[in-house]
Design a protein around this nucleic acid. Structure first.
Lengths: 349, 349
DNA sequence: TTGTAGGCGTTATCAC
DNA sequence: GTGATAACGCCTACAA
């Protein structure tokens, strides 16, 4: 059974037609150019022989690889597998496959990966690694390579993107904490050179203002990365400053988890002493100690929508550039509680 | 800058040689067949033009796609991202890329995925979805497609595989519990049609015997899947049987987590009333409530080694078929404690 | 409606 | 050592 794959020529021979005709008969686009009888015969022959077109040859001829590149920071960050699956499921349905590239937040590595992807003639690129200033975009545009952004946006708004309404999300977090009686609410901000970090920080300031709460400088700490470790560092900083904060809205779940660690390490308790809200609702975050209150948005769907947009771009349907903002949602769990010292059941939702 | 990629012909023209010669000069394997001067000139021309070979054309000619398929149950199971990264990192270093396929444990879906991968002319296949009886292997062998197995083995031992010493792993778990004074130790077994489930079950029985402990039927429950939900169902069953068990060795972390949920739901406590040990040391499992005591083995390395074996197979170095068993390791955390009612500090490690 | 011919970019196999 | 030629499998003007 280790015989070489069936070729179009063999199918044509069996159907008694010329390969070109067989090609037409098998191509849905040009099936109209062929008589019904021949079409049936060719299809039958293909079926009988177990023919499947050689995508390599087809790619060489059509200059379409039916392959797209996907850039993510790191697959082992639980945020990304759902996103990747959403993307792949949609791509697979259209006959495309994804080449995953983990950049580990390293620009040189990213450049190298993109170079290799382009060598493999990817038809498009979906990136979840954009910084606000993202040179890759200009290069891709110059090369005519379709690109969509996921989660993170760039300041250059001329590319389609699928993300979440970060400002609205962080507002939900702040409103929740305010409703629990907290007034000195801190923010562990993400890196300010990526849109998620910046938008959530801005959203935090706006939400606090809307609640009539002040944001003195000592209530904001900037993390250098969206990592547990940085969350711990920032949490510790916040506690050491003795700023009297009773709640923390973190820019994502990783930072929140790290912050909880810092709180415990300081001999205090979350949520009894300090409430913490995360952002993302990562898988398994509901089973941590304590289960994290957080802002959810549908990662699978982000990938799914991004794939759809990318496919449209590749197909050349020049729909106007669109930025899609999915709606976030507050998920209340065990890491938030009424402000210590506030009497009575202030558990209005 | 949207000009078409540079071709070999252009490089040859610039260097003043025939394309075939340029090809030889650029191919490390055949560089010896070309004079040093020409080789230098060609390399210089390629450099100047920014030439990179078209892998599609090369694949068509050489019948090597430099692409391998990777079958996993589900990327969103945190077990697999590290494995996939280990695999991809090794593959990338050899100029290969991975096509990931999520089977969701569905045979039809798996068949379809493999079909599509073969249509794309993958050079090899790495599978983490093997059941003991795994028809895919025979087909692949018949088609001459190199295959390596990861984590799960098949009864057909004629394929290279990289896994963990499951029996040794579960023995570590049982020994740990026994040392804590537990005598009625239960097992939540995994599905018995996959090697991990079967080997861990057998290992459990053997380990109990070695400790001089009995394994009455009521102390073993068989899960239908390695899922949290099944863990909960099995845990509940165990508690309802009122078998007096004070410890559970689960066949993996998911089952263990589910079991902990069942214990809490029954108004009992882990580890105060019942100790639980998992298997795998999944990412984030150390941050659960309680932090899970478990058996660790290096998933990244499993992927890495599997990729290495697959590459050798593809290269045709017909090394004898080898099954690699990586060493497991006990990681003691918060889900295990001294048997309730046992006096004194029995905390010998 | 169908056949013909040429080419996508590369490499293997001949000759010279 | 280098050049010429053909072929990998498919698609598509163009011709018939």
């Amino acid at each position: 059974m280790a015989n070489p794959p069936v070729t179009l020529k063999e199918v044509a021979a069996r159907a008694g037609v010329h390969p070109a005709t067989a090609s037409r008969a098998l191509n849905p686009e040009r099936q109209g150019l062929v008589s019904e009888g021949v079409a049936r015969r060719v299809r039958a022959a293909a079926e009988a022989l177990g023919y499947s077109p050689n995508p390599v040859a087809r790619s060489l001829r059509t200059r379409r690889s039916h392959t797209v590149g996907v850039l993510i920071p790191d697959l082992t960050n639980p945020l990304f597998p759902p996103l990747v699956r959403g993307l792949e499921d949609r791509l697979a349905a259209a006959g495309y496959v994804a080449l995953i590239g983990n950049t580990d937040g390293n620009d040189d590595r990213e450049r190298l990966i993109v170079e290799q992807m382009r060598a493999r003639r990817i038809d498009g690129l979906a990136s979840a690694t954009a910084r606000l200033r993202y040179p890759l975009l200009a290069q891709a545009a110059a090369a005519g390579l379709p690109v969509v952004l996921m989660n993170r946006m760039a300041t250059d708004h001329s590319f389609p993107a699928v993300s979440v309404d970060n400002e609205r999300g962080i507002r939900l977090a702040v409103a929740h904490l305010a409703a629990l009686g907290h007034r000195r609410i801190a923010h562990i901000a993400g890196p300010q050179d990526v849109s998620t970090g910046l938008e959530r920080y801005r959203g935090f300031a706006a939400a606090m203002a809307a609640c009539g709460l002040a944001v003195p400088a000592e209530l904001v700490v900037f993390a250098r990365a969206f990592s547990i470790q940085e969350g711990t560092r920032c949490g510790r900083l916040l506690l050491e400053r003795d700023s009297g904060c009773t709640a923390v809205a973190a820019a994502n779940d990783m930072l929140a988890v790290g912050c909880c660690t810092a709180i415990e390490a300081a001999g205090r308790s979350c949520p009894a002493d300090v409430s913490v809200v995360g952002f993302n609702d990562m898988p398994f975050i509901d089973r941590l100690r304590p289960p994290l209150t957080t802002i959810r948005f549908p990662h699978y769907q982000v990938g799914h929508e991004a794939a759809g947009a990318l496919l449209e771009l590749i197909a050349g349907r020049s729909r106007p550039v669109r930025v899609l903002r999915l709606a976030p949602e507050l998920v209340v769990r065990g890491s938030t509680a009424v402000r210590p010292g506030v009497p009575g059941p202030s558990s209005r939702r």
